[in-house]
Amino acid sequence: SKTSNTIRVFLPNKQRTVVNVRNGMSLHDCLMKALKVRG
């Protein structure tokens, strides 16, 4: 089974995003990807 960790990230202006960290990806990469999608 694939394991994925879901991390809630609290952003300024009362924004919130959820990042799924996959195996083999660093938290930083996942964060940058999530913020790019939002931006």
Rank of each mutant, 00 (worst) to 15 (best):
S1A: 05
S1I: 07
S1R: 13
S1C: 12
S1P: 14
S1H: 14
S1G: 12
S1N: 14
S1L: 11
S1Q: 15
S1T: 13
K2T: 08
K2V: 03
K2M: 11
K2R: 10
K2E: 09
K2N: 13
K2Q: 15
K2G: 15
T3P: 14
T3N: 07
T3I: 11
T3A: 15
T3S: 09
S4N: 12
S4G: 10
S4D: 15
S4R: 14
S4V: 05
S4T: 15
S4I: 08
S4C: 11
N5Y: 08
N5V: 07
N5S: 15
N5T: 09
N5G: 05
N5K: 09
N5D: 09
N5I: 07
N5H: 12
T6M: 11
T6A: 08
T6S: 10
T6R: 08
T6K: 07
T6L: 07
T6P: 06
T6V: 15
I7S: 01
I7N: 00
I7T: 03
I7P: 03
I7F: 08
I7M: 09
I7V: 11
I7L: 11
I7D: 05
R8S: 06
R8G: 02
R8H: 06
R8C: 07
R8L: 11
R8P: 02
V9M: 02
V9G: 01
V9A: 12
V9E: 00
V9T: 10
V9K: 05
V9L: 02
F10L: 06
F10H: 14
F10I: 02
F10T: 05
F10C: 06
F10Y: 08
F10S: 12
F10P: 05
F10V: 02
L11M: 08
L11R: 01
L11P: 00
L11Q: 00
L11V: 04
P12L: 01
P12Q: 02
P12R: 01
P12M: 05
P12T: 03
P12S: 01
P12A: 02
N13D: 10
N13Y: 08
N13K: 08
N13T: 15
N13I: 06
N13H: 06
N13S: 11
N13C: 15
N13G: 03
K14E: 08
K14I: 07
K14M: 09
K14T: 07
K14W: 05
K14N: 15
K14S: 05
K14Q: 06
K14R: 09
Q15H: 01
Q15P: 01
Q15L: 02
Q15E: 15
Q15K: 03
Q15R: 01
R16C: 06
R16H: 12
R16P: 00
R16L: 06
R16G: 06
R16S: 06
T17A: 06
T17I: 01
T17S: 10
T17R: 05
T17N: 02
T17P: 00
T17F: 05
V18A: 09
V18E: 03
V18F: 03
V18D: 01
V18G: 02
V18L: 04
V18T: 14
V18I: 13
V19E: 05
V19G: 01
V19F: 13
V19L: 11
V19I: 12
V19A: 10
V19D: 00
V19T: 11
N20I: 13
N20S: 08
N20E: 05
N20K: 14
N20D: 06
N20T: 08
N20Y: 13
N20H: 12
V21A: 10
V21G: 14
V21I: 05
V21E: 00
V21S: 05
V21M: 05
V21F: 05
V21L: 09
R22F: 03
R22D: 03
R22S: 07
R22C: 11
R22H: 12
R22L: 14
R22G: 09
R22P: 14
R22N: 15
N23Y: 12
N23C: 15
N23T: 10
N23I: 07
N23D: 12
N23H: 09
N23K: 09
N23S: 11
G24S: 14
G24R: 12
G24C: 13
G24V: 14
G24D: 07
G24A: 11
G24Y: 05
M25R: 12
M25V: 12
M25K: 13
M25L: 10
M25E: 03
M25I: 10
M25T: 13
S26C: 13
S26G: 09
S26H: 05
S26I: 15
S26D: 02
S26T: 15
S26R: 08
S26N: 10
L27V: 15
L27M: 13
L27K: 03
L27R: 00
L27P: 00
L27Q: 00
H28Y: 10
H28L: 09
H28P: 01
H28D: 11
H28S: 03
H28Q: 14
H28C: 14
H28R: 12
H28N: 07
D29A: 12
D29Y: 13
D29E: 06
D29N: 13
D29R: 05
D29G: 13
D29V: 09
D29H: 14
C30F: 04
C30S: 11
C30Y: 03
C30I: 07
C30G: 08
C30W: 00
C30R: 02
L31M: 06
L31A: 05
L31R: 00
L31V: 07
L31P: 00
L31Q: 00
L31T: 05
M32V: 11
M32T: 12
M32S: 05
M32K: 08
M32I: 09
M32L: 13
M32A: 09
M32R: 05
K33M: 05
K33T: 02
K33E: 01
K33I: 01
K33G: 02
K33L: 05
K33N: 03
K33R: 09
K33D: 03
K33Q: 04
A34E: 02
A34T: 04
A34V: 03
A34S: 10
A34G: 08
A34P: 07
L35P: 00
L35V: 06
L35A: 05
L35M: 11
L35R: 01
L35Q: 01
K36N: 15
K36R: 10
K36M: 15
K36Q: 13
K36I: 11
K36T: 08
K36S: 14
K36E: 06
K36D: 05
V37M: 13
V37G: 03
V37E: 01
V37A: 08
V37W: 07
V37L: 10
R38C: 00
R38Q: 05
R38G: 00
R38H: 00
R38S: 02
R38P: 02
R38L: 02
R38Y: 05
G39V: 04
G39S: 13
G39C: 10
G39A: 10
G39E: 06
G39D: 14
G39R: 07
